[in-house]
């Protein structure tokens, strides 16, 4: 029996729907899968440690034979401080560049700038780390007369440079999505270009811009190689911009290869992975709540 055209179309329609549904579900499955496996590796240790000491102590001596200590307090401070500093640099530049691209620059300059910014996004993080070691570090020593060039500020600078392209491209999309009628209405009311940006575009695009910034945060907090190379990788709570630090991600990258599978050290590194999971989750959740809060208003 041959299928009629109509039946064939109905079948293919169903098939396509199924495929799309699978794609959607797979995203959820993968996230939970990753979470599950990381959790499975780290969980046994969760029962053994004092959670307070784990989170707040700055004693990280995992390789000691007699008295190993597993406090990640300094690592959390390291990760958070480098991310916050990076964002303090990247957000003004990123959002500013996005506004310039979408509102102020001519079409030819725009093409050139976009290509350059995309190029910036394509640089591998290890190359950034290399730049941090060989360019930024001597520069910091020369300009600020600090003893060590690989430090918090160096890492933050690199992270800022790495997240700016993301903030710019997503932010520009968000601004482009604001209907032209808004711009025209504001211009017809006698608003200057800057007033249009400040009073109309930024409020209209704030959700998209927030998403852009948070993607930048995600990029910064998850970055490993560049911070491993450029922050000094030294466990301590920083007291100035030019103190070396160590981050959660860099610790995993540097130490996981040296541990034996199933050891305490191994498990605690997975626990750090879980902690990173939790941090990104909190960042995303806050963003969601903020966006919803804005909408309700």
């Amino acid at each position: 029996m041959r299928l009629s055209r109509k039946q064939l179309r109905a079948w293919s329609e169903k098939l396509i729907e199924l495929a799309i549904r699978l794609c959607g579900i797979s995203a959820i499955v993968f996230v939970f899968g990753i979470f599950f496996f990381v959790f499975r590796e780290g969980a046994p240790f969760l029962a053994k440690i004092d959670l307070r000491e784990f989170l707040f102590s700055d004693q990280w001596i995992p390789t000691s034979q007699t008295n190993p200590r597993y406090g990640v307090g300094a690592l959390i401070v390291g990760s958070v401080s480098v991310t916050v500093l990076a964002m303090a640099i990247a957000v003004p530049f990123g959002v500013g560049a996005a506004i310039f691209l979408s509102e102020f620059c001519g079409p030819r300059a725009k093409e050139g700038l976009k290509i350059t910014i995309e190029l910036l996004a394509a640089i591998p993080s290890v190359v950034w780390g290399f730049i941090g070691l060989s360019v930024v570090s001597p520069l910091l020593i020369q300009v600020f007369h600090v003893p060590i060039g690989v430090n918090l500020f160096n890492g933050a600078l690199l992270l800022a440079l790495m997240s700016v392209p993301i903030i710019v491209s997503i932010g520009e999309d968000a601004l482009k999505a604001v209907p032209d009628t808004y711009r025209e209405a504001a211009v017809a009311l006698g608003a200057t270009r800057w007033q249009v940006v400040y009073r109309v575009l930024l409020p209209a695009a704030k959700n998209g811009l927030l998403a852009a910034v948070l993607l930048g945060v995600g990029r910064a907090i998850g970055e490993t190689m560049a911070v491993l190379m450029a922050t000094g990788h030294s466990i301590r709570i920083p007291h100035s911009l030019f103190d070396p630090i160590r981050t959660l991600t860099a610790t995993i990258a540097a130490e996981l290869g040296e541990t034996s599978q199933g050891s305490e050290h191994y498990q605690v590194l997975f626990l750090i992975g879980l902690l990173l999971f939790l941090i990104t989750f909190i960042v995303n959740l806050t963003a969601d709540l903020v966006v919803k809060g804005i909408r309700r208003k």
């Binding site: 209907p179 009628t181 808004y182 025209e184 209405a185 504001a186 211009v187 017809a188 009311l189 006698g190 009073r199 109309v200 409020p203 209209a204």
Partner: peptide, 16 residues
């Protein structure tokens, strides 16, 4: 533009 008030055919409420 402030001297000339303009009303568009379809209402464009600014996002305010």
């Amino acid at each position: 533009r402030r001297k000339i008030g303009m009303v568009a055919p379809l209402p464009v409420g600014l996002p305010l």
